[in-house]
Design a protein around this nucleic acid. Sequence first.
DNA 1: TCATCACCGCTATGAGGGAT
DNA 2: ATCCCTCATAGCGGTGATGA
Length: 283
Amino acid sequence: MEYFMMPTDKIPSLQHFKKTEKDVIGGLCSLANIPLSPETAQDQERRIRREIANSNERRRMQSINAGFQSLKTVLPHTDGEKLSKAAILQQTSDYIFALEQEKTQLLAQNNQLKRFIQEFSGSSPKRRRAEEKDEGIGSPDTLEEEKVEEVRREMLELRQQLDKERSARLQLEEQVLASPAPPAPTRHPTVIVPAPTLTQQPHHHVTVVTMSPSVHTSTVSTSRQNLDTIVQAIQHIERAQERRASAEEEQRRAVIVSPAHVAMDTACSDTDTDTEAEDCSMN
DNA sequence: TCATCACCGCTATGAGGGAT
DNA sequence: ATCCCTCATAGCGGTGATGA
């Protein structure tokens, strides 16, 4: 919700709208010698309320869109890529799932390494031999050899796993390069991982996620996002001003054609917006 | 070229809930 | 009770992509 929030002291109050609107309407009506009927005032009030609601709704939509933009910048490999809102949501979900898998994997590896360190660095060979003597278990040399063999196996497994990861990643990158416009919503180089199961062995399915540079430049993205929002707002105001100008032109023409007939719908009664209300109040 | 579709933004409206 | 805000939804029009 904080994506596009104006400071509350800068949001014009309803009273402000009422006052400025009444001033403008009253001024125009007095210029045209038209009495301001109660019905018109009611209509005006309704219209003002509607405009405020529209403005609020617009701001809400902008905040939602800012959220989507924010999500998009976090997604890997989406810079400049066109993504629908649905695709952004889907890809975000996929991305979070992939990150969770990666985390699980790394934790498992971490625990494994900790075990190795404890076993082979925690106690000195002398002490281990003494312990083995005390317990009267087999020959120390045989045990040592067995452990070395075990470590060798583990390392071999890890190496094989690493090779698998590499080949999977290369394969995926080739696929991505070979197909210019894949229909699937997920285009970032994420190895698709199987759905999580309770019995899943953590290191049998490996997720390779290439982090986007945008992840490291989130601050820049945020600033850019703010800029975008401002640019959008300016564009919105410009469009509204264009519409208003043309409306004014029409109104002027109408006045020239029949001076007695002054349109009640003033220049400030366009469908836009809070900013315009301020403009009108300043005029 | 044109019809169709998907996506998007905007407006209007109403419901629900918190504040006064 | 009333007001205000937030949210959801429907409808409409604009726009770009796509296939016949």
